[in-house]
Design a protein around this nucleic acid. Sequence first.
DNA 1: TAGATTGTTAATCGATTAACAATC
DNA 2: TAGATTGTTAATCGATTAACAATC
Lengths: 216, 216
Amino acid sequence: MKKPPTPIGPAPSIRRLPRYLDYLRGLESERQRHVSCTEIATAFGQTAIQVRKDLAICSITGRPRVGYPVPALAAAIRAFLGWDNASEAFLVGSGHLGLALLGYAGFSNIGLNITAAFDSDRRKIGSHHHGQVIHDISLLPEMARRMQVHIAVLTVPRERAQYVCDLLVGAGIKAIWNFSDPQLQTPDDVIVETVQLSASLAMLSSRLQAQSHSPT
Amino acid sequence: MKKPPTPIGPAPSIRRLPRYLDYLRGLESERQRHVSCTEIATAFGQTAIQVRKDLAICSITGRPRVGYPVPALAAAIRAFLGWDNASEAFLVGSGHLGLALLGYAGFSNIGLNITAAFDSDRRKIGSHHHGQVIHDISLLPEMARRMQVHIAVLTVPRERAQYVCDLLVGAGIKAIWNFSDPQLQTPDDVIVETVQLSASLAMLSSRLQAQSHSPT
DNA sequence: TAGATTGTTAATCGATTAACAATC
DNA sequence: TAGATTGTTAATCGATTAACAATC
């Protein structure tokens, strides 16, 4: 029942890597050659030690007194995340959120390239958005095989989520970026990463609530 | 420089509460009177002890042999999160993501009610989306005061984020649900909760990458 | 060289899990 | 009552932070 742990590195460290990459992009454009952990840490209000530990999981090594070479560090992070070559992905569910993601230009920076979009709604199928046609979802399995796509961005209504998820798994999809339902059931070898906005809002709300009960 | 810790409870626990609430909604509609931690834990593949600890932060108490009364438990979670009365919020930035959030019906379940939307783009101002007019952002400060709104959902382009954020703070906004820029600078008394999609994708990507380097 | 910065090993901190007495 | 389930106190586990020798 349990997923295999697949211990790549501490989750909090991995989640911080994209921000370092962002920062390094800035340094690269300024042609800065090297950067120290202290410098990065200061920019983010963290400790230098934490930055060093985080970078270590990408198995890149710095030089005392000098720091890390900027381009090599960025390359190491990208390689660790597999963002050196953009992965092709399908968008499944062309509602408002799905189309917003389809139109998001920033994915090129984070290794994602949405190559086709799908829906099951007759009224949406065939329409164009952000330069893409919405395909009938029944075409997905064949297209996934033909185009060798193994990643899906799932943005269908919650009621449909498990059904569509099963279809994706059947089509050989190996990783699902899931915006639909925090309860998806999948085989152990399918990677699911769930974005749960309500969890984030709960953090905001609880802090607000705490504040309103103990006003300074 | 550092934010005040505001220790309400462990963040991981708080992030799990919305899912419990979801589950309880299901039980309520089935008119189930009581629920045990074991039952909830089984549904989520967690341990009963963790569920109990999580619920404890909402300061609700169960009865041995019986469990927790379903309606009271749901009410306690909602009260803890401040979701018993929907909070009014402004949407700031009416791009694709912003409009998707504006149209998201599920916010009523999680204590959020977007009462006005703003943008600075002439072409968007005055247009209607999901039953709302997009207002000129210059009107925000006055409207925030008049409507007593203290929460903003920030979905502007990253380049504009800090500028708009400063404007929000000046307008008396006390909490920002931030989709724009993980680096926002705010005064200590302003609550910022950042949704960083790239962090989530990094989790997905790194697992995929690890798998591809050590195929079973 | 001197000193800043690294990588590594140890200590601390916080969250999860376990153990168990209390209780309905 | 007996036994399931709670709340609480203790043990474990993992991540962060600290300490420090290695090194450019």
